[in-house]
Structures are given as structure tokens and as C-alpha cells.
Design a protein around this nucleic acid. Structure first.
Ligand code: MN
Ligand code: MN
Ligand code: MN
Ligand code: MN
Lengths: 224, 224
DNA sequence: ATCTAAATTTAGCCTCGACTAAATTTATTT
DNA sequence: AAATAAATTTAGTCGAGGCTAAATTTAGAT
């Protein structure tokens, strides 16, 4: 067990590299710079440093982007686990709403101890998803597989349960909350417009017409 | 309302200057260096920078030590309030013991939002003392006056309630806990030895003979 | 195949906050 | 009043992690 003691900065780099490489391709300098809100030149510098460290965290080929080594991936999942457990816990025990937790968790994720992590995980009953429905990496740092489908792919007469809402913008989150579109909620698609891809969705007794910008961000599990 | 956004480092300096100047005299470079575990030369450098900042946080005279300005004092109390609320909250809601909380609070104190502070304060019922009995600065950043007396000044037949235990060493804290010497507990002094200043103290039905090293660290309120 | 635009890297610089070694000031003893 | 010791400050250096401006590579469009 190594205590690598990486900095806040390094942890954020690893976290965002993880997210950008989830679909398989390496993370580009520019994308990383945009996500981290750091200038591309600075990102190049940091990536080069990371790629040169003792236990290599990152695989880097000039002009080809970065990927994580297994060690780097574990470090990233550690931070992501912290983040998602913290969000869950802020909502459950301190009454935060789902649009408020991200910013707070963004800072706390870097400073809590492994002991703290264990305690909140236990207090919450080892949850598998955070308030937005994002999967929480397990204690041994494996990311569970997500088998949800985007709401945008459903068609009339299909019913489903909302599992995950992939949105960060607090305004959008509050809007979705006001429509009742939150994880755990059951919905039914009643209409589809091929022209604009709008879906008409029944939530409880309310009916909403949702555009692609929303339906691609909501992930559901079909009810057979 | 200014968001000064001071760094972790600056916050720790201010906090320790506050503590060292509580008895009236300025904090010396060396004392500060020892408390912060930073070399004296570095402390001089930081103090000089702090004394030169836009809203002055610190009063500094070469070779005469530092004191806090009202602004600096407020900043220090803000951090101390965070620390003590966090300790209280870690103990109450996550089952930490009083010898474990300090280290965790030491890191969290710098990253929680004012919103977080308000939420835990409210959830705890706006407590006035932390798990060690230290007074928690109020929401408007005033430090309540402490009117306790050291246990060492009591004499046989006097009874008192433990209010505060001024110890940081986890081993000592665990020892005191095992003796039942914790805030809120009632005690009675039955014997005093003028030779070694030992006090014999009755706690519940247990009798302990305590040396100066312990009795000067326990602060009580006399029962008239 | 060439030209251009976008992406990426290099080079040089900066601030923060620490450190060591050396100089200086203040305090204590003789 | 000196001499010595202790405390403090100065001077110079370092690593982390940013930034800008300029050079270079790669990718896209004729
Ligand atoms: Mn988040
Ligand atoms: Mn973060
Ligand atoms: Mn503490
Ligand atoms: Mn601290």
C-alpha cells in the first residue's frame, strides 16, 4: 500500500482524464484544458510531468493525447468515489439539493481520509449511485458497468425507470427536478415526433414534451 | 462582504497567531514556527507578506512578533469556528472519537463553504463547545468568554463539572477517556498533596490520583 | 500535393510558499 | 561592559503549477 499523496491539481487531472477516456479514445490536450479550465500549454506541461513520474500514472504520446495506466486509473477512481459518496451524503444528511452538491464535493473530495470515506459509505449503506444516478466506484476501486439507455432512444408505449441524469448545470438540474424527472422515478413515453425528435413523456399524472437536449441526458432502465 | 479567498497556508498562520496571542502578548517567530512546523526563516517571510497585504491582517514589528488586526482576527475565528464545528459534527454524526477528529478537521476546515458551516451548525443545534470542550466562535465571529478554572487549583471537598480538556495528544486523550475525565462529567476532589501537587479525584465511583501534567489541562466549573 | 487552420508543444516567465546558510539583532552571563 | 548564546531576519534557491507568445505538428480543404 503506497501513500502517493498526490496534490489536488494532479487528482483533478486524473479525474478528468478518466472521464474523457471512458469511451476508449485518449484525452486530447485541448479537451482536458477545457474541462479543467486551464490553458492548453499548461496542460501539456503537467501531462509531461505525470508521464515521467516514478509509478507512471499516465501514458502519453506527443500529439496523440493521454490515457491512464492501471495505477492512474485507480487514483482517478479513488477521487471519483470520494466525490460521489460526498454528494450522496450531503444530500442525505445535510439536506443539500442535487444542484448544490457538486461544487462542495469538488473541494472536499481531495481532503477526506480513507477513514472518512469508509464511515460515510457505511452510514449511507454502501450506495451504488450518487444523487444524479452516477455509479459510485466500489471500495476496491472498480467501476460498475452501466447498462442504462438514453431516454432519447425510447418510443411510444415504452415505460422505464430513470436511473441517471448526466447534467452538471444547476439550472437544468433544478428544471428537471421541477418536472419530477429524477432518479428512481417511473415514466412512460406516449408520443414521438420524428421531425424534431421530441418525446412526450408521462411522469406521474403530468405530461411533458421533451427535446433532444434533455432526452439524451436522461438514462433509464426499461420496464419489460 | 469581501471574499478574501485566503489560502490554506495563510489560514493556518492566522489560526496559530490567534492562539499564541490569546494571553495578550505578540506571537514570536520561533513559537509560530514550532506550532506550524515550518522553519523560522520561512515564517518571517510569510509574516512580512501578510503585514504588507491590502486589507492588513497582521501587525508586525521587526523582532517584536506579530499580532492580528481586527480583520485578521475575524479570519482566524472563521477557521477556528470551522474546525470546532467539524470536530463536533464528526463525533456526533460519524462516530469519531475525540482523539481522532483533530487531524480530519485540520484539513476540512479550509475547504468547507459558509453554507456547509451553517448546515452543520444548525444540524447540531448551534453547539457552544466542541468535543474537547473548546468554545466555538459564534456565527458572527465573536469568541465567547471562558470562565473555567484549572482542575489543578481545586482543593479537597470541592466539586466541579469538567468543561474543557486542553490536550491534543491522542494518547493522552484516550487515557483521559478511559478514566472518564471528559466534558460534562462531575468530579470531586478528596485529597491534595502539597509536595507533588497531586490531586485525588473521585469520578463516579472511581478514584484517581492525578499529577499536575493532567490537572492543569482539565478546566472545570465549580459547583457551589 | 499544397496550403491553411487548428491543435499541440516549447520557451521563458511568474507567484506561492517552503528551505538552507549566513548575517544581524536582542538577550543573558560573566 | 564584553562575550556568548539565542532569536530573528536576509539572501539565495527550489518545486509546484499556472500563464503568454512563439514555434511546430497534424489535419482538412482545395
Ligand atoms: Mn458532481
Ligand atoms: Mn476537485
Ligand atoms: Mn482540534
Ligand atoms: Mn489546517
Amino acid at each position: 500500500m503506497k501513500k502517493s499523496a498526490s496534490t489536488q491539481s494532479v487528482q483533478d487531472y486524473l479525474k478528468h482524464i478518466y472521464e474523457l477516456t471512458e469511451k476508449g479514445s485518449p484525452a486530447s490536450t485541448n479537451d482536458l484544458a477545457r474541462e479543467l479550465d486551464i490553458k492548453p500549454a499548461s496542460v501539456t506541461g503537467m501531462i509531461q510531468k505525470l508521464a515521467a513520474e516514478k509509478p507512471t500514472l499516465v501514458e502519453y504520446q506527443k500529439h496523440q493525447g493521454v490515457t491512464l495506466t492501471p495505477t492512474g486509473k485507480r487514483a482517478a477512481l479513488e477521487v471519483i468515489r470520494h466525490h460521489r459518496l460526498l454528494e450522496t451524503w450531503l444530500v442525505q444528511t445535510l439536506g443539500y439539493s442535487w444542484d448544490e452538491v457538486h461544487e462542495e464535493a469538488e473541494r472536499l473530495e481531495h481532503v477526506i481520509s480513507e477513514d472518512f470515506e469508509r464511515r460515510i459509505a457505511a452510514a449511507l449503506g454502501n450506495p451504488t449511485r450518487d444523487p444524479h444516478g452516477e455509479l459510485i466506484p466500489t471500495a476496491d476501486l472498480k467501476m460498475p458497468v452501466d447498462d442504462t439507455t438514453p431516454l432519447s432512444s425510447l418510443r411510444p408505449s415504452q415505460s422505464a425507470t430513470i436511473q441517471r441524469v448526466a447534467a452538471a448545470d444547476p439550472n437544468l438540474l433544478r428544471h428537471l427536478d421541477s418536472l419530477g424527472l429524477t432518479p428512481g422515478i417511473q415514466i412512460e413515453v406516449t408520443e414521438y415526433s420524428a421531425f424534431d425528435n421530441n418525446l412526450t413523456v408521462k411522469v406521474g399524472r403530468k405530461i411533458n414534451v421533451l427535446g433532444l437536449n434533455i432526452t439524451t441526458k436522461i438514462f433509464v432502465e426499461l420496464i419489460s
